[in-house]
């Protein structure tokens, strides 16, 4: 083309807007930020993310975790010049995900200097909550990412090729949807025995279907649109059509689902742990802390609320975590919903 262009003719330049500019002009984003409840939700999530990221600095390593990090005292972790500072934050050894055990007596002890939120079954509740935030967010991200990937691929195949492929995939999804709540997940974990891998697999086996449904519906709709025909007539192949032209159009619907799932998936894992089907005893996860609390519902006679801290701290964290994601998720749904514009 350049040969045709005379030297003195003005060239057309398309200014690409920077990401920051595009974000500032994004109508849904502005709408989201105007919603006070959503901002509150974002704040809660930010607190948990910070808590998870800086877990080693908030609940300092002790016992085996200290040894595996090559440290001699908990206070050393605050020194960013040492390699164990970075190791503790980015790649902590497994032993750090074990709740510090203060004593071997199961009877709860009230909040003290040694254990700020008290102990439950001898475990330090504060340590369990801070590192548990890490477990919750990490597992949530891993599972949602895999679900999203599988869901997009399967949904695109189902919606683009239609016919019997679509039919088979949709019937499989129908079956997955026939199990209420966590029941299929519980069954899968029980059959294949609990371990971090089976937990992830069980959530993936049941979780991809929701994304596949959303994508399929959108693909069926957008594949008939003119801009897709235009791309096709320019010779774009199937894969390019799908992933450059059709899938990006479904992103907003997916994003809402991702936000909601980032809240519900970790809660599902906590629920599994609560039943005793999650991580091994003593692992830092919130469901387990609630499970410990079941033995201490009633205080000793005369002091019915003596063990309040055993239930209160884990429960409030779980509820706030879930509330944060729900507030943002609901607001995102409203913001992206074209009907409310």
């Amino acid at each position: 083309m350049s040969a045709v262009n005379p030297n003195n003719a003005p060239t057309l330049t398309v200014k690409r807007r920077s990401l920051r500019e595009r974000l500032r002009e994004s109508r849904p984003l502005r709408k989201l930020l105007r919603n006070r409840l959503a901002v509150f939700g974002l704040f809660i999530i930010a607190v948990f993310v910070l808590m998870a990221a800086f877990a080693p600095l908030i609940a300092t390593p002790k016992d085996n975790c200290l040894r595996d990090l090559g440290m001699t005292s908990s206070g050393q972790v605050y020194n960013p010049l040492q390699p164990y500072f970075w190791k503790a934050i980015f790649v902590p050894p497994d032993s750090c995900y074990t709740i510090t055990r203060i004593s071997f007596s199961p009877v709860p002890t009230p909040p003290s200097d040694q254990a700020w939120f008290g102990t439950s079954q001898g475990y330090d509740i504060f340590y369990g909550i801070v590192w548990g935030a890490r477990t919750m967010l990490k597992m949530g991200l891993i599972i949602v990412a895999i679900n999203l990937l599988i869901g997009i691929i399967v949904g695109v195949i189902s919606g683009y090729y239609r016919g019997w492929v679509d039919n088979v995939i949709q019937r499989v999804i129908d079956i997955i949807f026939a199990f209420p709540g966590l029941i299929l997940t519980v069954v899968l974990v029980a059959i294949f025995r609990p371990s971090p891998t089976t937990i992830i697999l069980a959530f993936v086996a049941t979780g991809w279907a929701g994304y596949a449904r959303i994508i399929r519906g959108d693909v069926l709709r957008t594949r008939e649109m003119e801009y897709v025909d235009a791309a096709r007539s320019l010779g774009a192949r199937d894969a390019r059509l799908m992933f450059r032209h059709v899938v990006p159009n479904s992103m907003t619907a997916l994003l809402t689902q991702v936000v909601l799932d980032l809240g519900t998936v970790p809660l599902g894992i906590a629920a599994l742990s609560f039943l005793g089907l999650g991580f091994p005893v003593g692992y830092t996860d919130w469901g387990q802390l609630i499970n410990f609390a079941r033995a201490w519902i009633q205080g000793p006679s005369g002091q019915p609320l003596a063990y309040w801290y055993v239930t209160f701290f884990p429960a409030i964290c779980i509820v706030l975590f879930s509330l944060g994601w729900n507030l943002v998720g609901d607001a995102a749904r409203d913001a992206f919903d074209p009907r409310t514009r």
Binding site: A271, F274, Q298, P304, L305, W308, T311, S322, N326
Partner: peptide, 29 residues
């Protein structure tokens, strides 16, 4: 409503148990 559907069933159950059975003693647990 957003608070109540944010509370997972297992947390709700335990909290009700602590309050109405453990503390108030109104209902059997």
């Amino acid at each position: 409503s957003v608070i109540s559907y944010s509370i997972p069933t297992f947390v709700m159950g335990i909290v009700l148990l602590v309050v109405f059975y453990g503390f108030l003693g109104w209902f059997p647990g």
